[in-house]
């Protein structure tokens, strides 16, 4: 172990083996994943994100939602994710082909969101929840995102997306709380998160 070139080559080789096997192997296997055709509508799934959803995905990234939320339904023997209603099947590499960057997450301080658009489709619920999560989910420790909303004087007619706030959150009379463009984009992204389409050949667990 005193010959430097030999040591160097051995270190190189041991790491190169794993790099080729694991990273390059996965890259080759997952690089060619194609969307599937929905048997009912014959649309390709997953569909690409819309412009607004892409802007919302960027808000999701910037605010660091992945610090607490995952985006994958796990399989495995406990199957708890599916029993909990987080999705009809375990997630598959196909589900992520449009995700660049991927926002899969590693922590479940909050619930999984990969099918949140299918679980909770009400836009007003999402806005209230982001404004203060304790309104819709008592006991939640999610941060408030009031900085994504703004208070404004009610114009000729109220904004259709104005938040229905009551009690301590209610704005003063004559004012309303409306989502900023970033909040609208984020909610559009969340509502679009729906990977409940079937994938042929994928077991339920």
């Amino acid at each position: 172990m005193n010959r430097l070139p030999l040591l160097f080559i051995a270190l190189l080789a041991s790491f190169a083996a794993a790099w080729l096997g694991l990273v390059f192997g996965l890259y080759r296997e997952l690089g060619g994943v194609q969307p599937v055709s929905d048997p009912f509508t014959s649309e390709l799934q997953p569909r690409p994100y819309t412009e607004l959803e892409l802007a919302g995905r960027d808000v999701y990234r910037a605010e660091g939602c992945i610090a607490c939320h995952t985006q994958h339904v796990r399989g495995g023997r406990f199957n708890a994710d599916i029993e909990r209603g987080w999705g009809p099947r375990r997630s598959h590499p196909i589900d992520y082909i449009h995700d660049r960057p991927i926002l899969m997450g590693r922590s479940r301080t909050g619930p999984d969101l990969v099918n949140i658009g299918a679980r909770e489709a009400r836009r007003s619920w999402h806005h209230l929840h982001l404004y203060d999560p304790r309104i819709t989910s008592p006991g939640s420790n999610m941060p408030t995102y009031r900085y994504l909303y703004r208070k404004q004087r009610i114009g000729d007619e109220p904004d259709p997306d104005a938040l229905m706030l009551a009690g301590e959150h209610a704005p003063p009379p004559g004012y309303e709380v409306v989502p900023t463009d970033r909040a609208r984009a984020l909610v559009a992204y969340l509502l679009g998160l729906d990977r409940t389409y079937p994938i042929p050949g994928t077991p339920r667990r």
């Binding site: 694991l22 990273v23 996965l26 890259y27 997952l30 690089g31 994943v33 590499p93 992520y96 082909i97 449009h98 995700d99 660049r100 960057p101 991927i102 899969m104």
Partner: peptide, 14 residues
Amino acid sequence: APVGGVTESAIGGW
């Protein structure tokens, strides 16, 4: 040069 998809998670974990 993002590769996109699950490969990104794999590379991040690695």
